[in-house]
Write a protein that binds this DNA or RNA. Structure first.
Lengths: 160, 160
DNA sequence: TTGCTGTTGATATGATATAACAACCGATAT
DNA sequence: ATATCGGTTGTTATATCATATCAACAGCAA
């Protein structure tokens, strides 16, 4: 067990499960889960944090898997486009989806001390926003929520 | 009257009022509302849309007001830092605050047809998110909400 | 005067992201 | 077998967004 993100978990299993879930979804939907795409997702799952595209690219490069920016961005486009990873706009960074397979509308909790990112549900907030804007005529299709704050780990560290 | 954003309004007056409100706040808080900063805010108010930093810089350049990126970014940092303008992360762009002076927690409504941006209150959504994450131990300091969708104007145009 | 703080000017560089086009590969139609 | 078509990959080049750094200067206070 390792402590990454906001809670302890079996990280090895979480990587395996993440890959397996995406593999299954791709098979079901006729999507090509190519070695590059698989490797990028694997990297994101292993690191378990938001990573810049160039940071990912460096890893690919080290493995001889394509050295140019488009390689990383294409794989990320695929992963993000299909909900297997998310882009954190605030950080210009990407993170593996914590609930692959499950249809969900994530909000992100970003720790401003350690930059760790957790996924939360945005369902309630989306409902609230929908009500807030109901009289403007604006029709919400998708919502990006990124909350900045202090994660439990860093809050504990501060209190020390 | 012109139609900009989601509703008709007296745009000339809205620029005047915006500048006046910021001027007053700066005087009150001892902030230096320098010509550069003023001009950048004025540009944002005039255009009344989200603008990239380099787009603003081009305008400054044309007026002989400093031609290097830091000029624009410094002014924008000041404006954003003091709540006189907002950064739209999704667009890597900046927009004048629609309610300068008023303390508020804006959410942004971004039209995916015309890229226009409106401000809405995020109060209800913030409350909802706070409840959603209450059991995680994450403490939310600030929240970024950017909703993508269709603005009333474009919805009307589509229906045609 | 000196020193301090905040702003501006300018050069350079870093970081993030995409355009464009050729090559390839597997599936399928002829 | 071979043409061709969609999707993926390889590669070069470039576009776009943002900051580090340091010198100059202006206002103000000790």
């Amino acid at each position: 067990m390792e402590t990454i993100g906001f809670s302890k978990h079996d990280h090895h299993a979480c990587i395996e499960e993440g890959l397996a879930a995406v593999e299954a979804t791709c098979r079901r939907d006729g999507l090509q889960f190519t070695p590059q795409r698989r490797r990028v997702l694997e990297i994101l799952l292993q690191e378990h944090r938001a990573m810049g595209a160039y940071e990912i690219l460096d890893k690919l490069r080290a493995e001889g898997m394509g050295a140019q920016p488009p390689v990383a961005y294409r794989a990320l486009d695929f992963l993000v486009g299909n909900g297997f990873a998310h882009k954190i706009e605030r950080l210009n960074a990407f993170i593996a989806c914590a609930h692959p397979g499950a249809r969900h509308k994530p909000a992100f909790l970003i720790c401003r001390k350690c930059d760790s990112v957790a996924e939360a549900s945005s369902d309630a907030a989306l409902k609230a926003m929908t009500e807030t804007v109901s009289d403007t005529g604006f029709q919400i299709d998708r919502m990006m929520i990124e909350a900045l704050g202090i994660c439990p780990n860093c809050a504990g560290a501060e209190a020390t």
